[in-house]
Write a protein that binds this DNA or RNA. Structure first.
Lengths: 221, 221
DNA sequence: ACCTGAACACCGTTCAAGT
DNA sequence: ACCTGAACACCGTTCAAGT
């Protein structure tokens, strides 16, 4: 029993930043952003709510850490033999998948610019691939920024839970049965229905193709 | 002095939805989303905070109205002789300008999908122009959706005030002086600096060009 | 150092009441 | 109908205190 200092199983694992951030995101996933509270987080951790303030100065800083964690989820492995446009397409899809796994976190991602290494590495990975296809670094950064904006903007329209509780009455087709919206009416009459995945892929490939043409991007053979 | 019923100048104008929504957005513009409160709104209106609940069931419904108001700001006039791609470009720029005038409202716009006539009319205007360039209604709606997603996503990265207060430490170039971010380093070394307007126009025109090529869009002569 | 608990200055919203 | 005001069940955060 020569236990040296670090006791083996405390009934609750000792608190630390990593553990708190993971619990915070899990709780946000479970109850939503509005019901997430320093107090409910404390309860979840089995600890006094104030204990968290020893690791984060305030709720905003904790939010930043949650956003950062979500950026770290993005898989940056590249298949190095894929052509540049396919590689960039995959990058954006991967980013979307990671973010989509935490819908309630999305408003934070869209809203809290984090200027930390994990985000930098995500941008770097995509930009580097564009440079290797012939883009100037500054152009590559602009392109990546636009693609990320599209990913996030599209996700917001797709999955986000409104800030400050719901309250949106259902879309209701009656709204669109108006003579001043002929295009909407025509599309609905033709059986049109919203397909987020498909729309995302269309917009993404349009943007990539447009950039490719504009900057004359191509892989060396 | 035969004043019939409607007295001419009440010391405070009678409350009504329009007036409340305008005051709410003005207050959000002035103090930000976090400091905006049913109580501060009451003070701004010179009225008991609870008076607003006679016109809106809750804060969320009021937020929806603010978002709707901001969509109504978008100028939908078209110059009918402009080519389709220029018209769509102008549409997106106009949308961006209207939204950018109310930075603190943006998280609400991005986050609260409103399915009301004003938003429908905005979508309709852009979609109709695409149909007249040869797009099928369903494709036109997909395109407009993607463009709107880009507009909002780009604005979020551009001007938004983080939800739940600031706390982001400054970007700091020291972050980017790392060997694992060569592209970022190279761009900074080459004097690269973030230009939101320019990046927006690049992304937008890339996307429009890509869609034009994909769907073979062109105006009839 | 790490965590607790009381306290402060707020919230959104309900409800009964006033006019 | 329109507006008031007290009250309820919460917040985030400060601060002094415990170990």
């Amino acid at each position: 029993m020569a236990d040296t200092g670090t006791s083996d199983r405390p009934t609750r694992p000792a608190l630390n930043r990593e553990h708190i951030v993971a619990a915070a995101r899990g709780l946000i996933d479970k109850v939503g952003l509005d019901a997430f509270t320093m107090r409910t987080l404390g309860r979840e951790l089995g600890v006094d709510p104030m204990a968290v303030y020893h690791y984060f100065p305030n709720k905003a800083a904790l939010f930043d850490a949650v956003v950062e964690l979500t950026y770290m989820d993005i898989e940056l492995k590249q298949s190095p033999d894929a052509p540049w446009d396919e590689a960039v397409f995959t990058f954006a899809s991967t980013m979307r998948t990671s973010m989509r796994a935490h819908p309630h976190v999305l408003p934070l991602v869209a809203t809290r610019p984090v200027n930390t290494a994990p985000v930098g590495l995500v941008i770097e990975a995509a930009a580097a691939r564009l440079v290797s296809a012939g883009a100037a670094p500054r152009d590559a950064l602009g392109i990546v920024n636009c693609i990320a904006a599209f990913v996030i903007g599209h996700l917001m329209a797709d999955v986000v839970e409104p800030i400050g509780g719901p309250e949106a009455p259902s879309p209701g087709p009656e709204l669109f049965e108006r003579t001043d919206m002929p295009t909407l009416m025509a599309a609905i009459a033709a059986g049109w229905t919203w397909d987020a995945d498909r729309t995302f892929e269309l917009g993404l490939s349009a943007m990539i193709a447009g950039f490719g043409a504009k900057y004359g991007l191509a892989d060396a053979d």
